[in-house]
């Protein structure tokens, strides 16, 4: 069971308290009703599925109930860092060689 740091509660809590909510930084277009089929496909269906670093949404559902973002390594399963919803994608990741 992973330990996940909730950026709102500011502590590590067991994975049981959390629920994954898919890839992060996929913003819903402001003019969604007007976008093309291709743009909708890119927004709704296409996900990166990388081997390595992934940016994900998680919810501390059995805790503070907040949604937040996390950087995780899909190879090691390790959480690199977590940050609050709405904050930009971190440019530098701790402990990850680029």
């Amino acid at each position: 069971m992973l330990l996940i740091r909730c950026p709102y509660c500011e502590e590590e809590r067991p994975e049981l308290e959390f629920r994954n909510a898919g890839e992060a930084h996929v913003a819903r277009p402001a003019d969604i009703a007007a976008i093309s089929d291709e743009d909708f496909e890119a927004f709704f269906f296409i996900r990166s599925n990388p081997k390595g670093i992934i940016y994900e949404r998680w919810r501390h559902i059995h805790g503070c109930a907040r949604f937040f973002n996390a950087v995780r390594d899909t190879v090691s399963d390790k959480f690199v860092m977590t940050y609050k919803a709405g904050e930009p994608k971190p440019k530098k990741l701790p402990g990850v060689a680029k």
């Binding site: 909510a21 819903r28 919810r59 907040r66 949604f67 919803a85 709405g86």
Partner: peptide
């Protein structure tokens, strides 16, 4: 609902 309210 919470998802949309908190994130979108």
């Amino acid at each position: 609902m919470e998802d949309y309210l908190q994130t979108e």
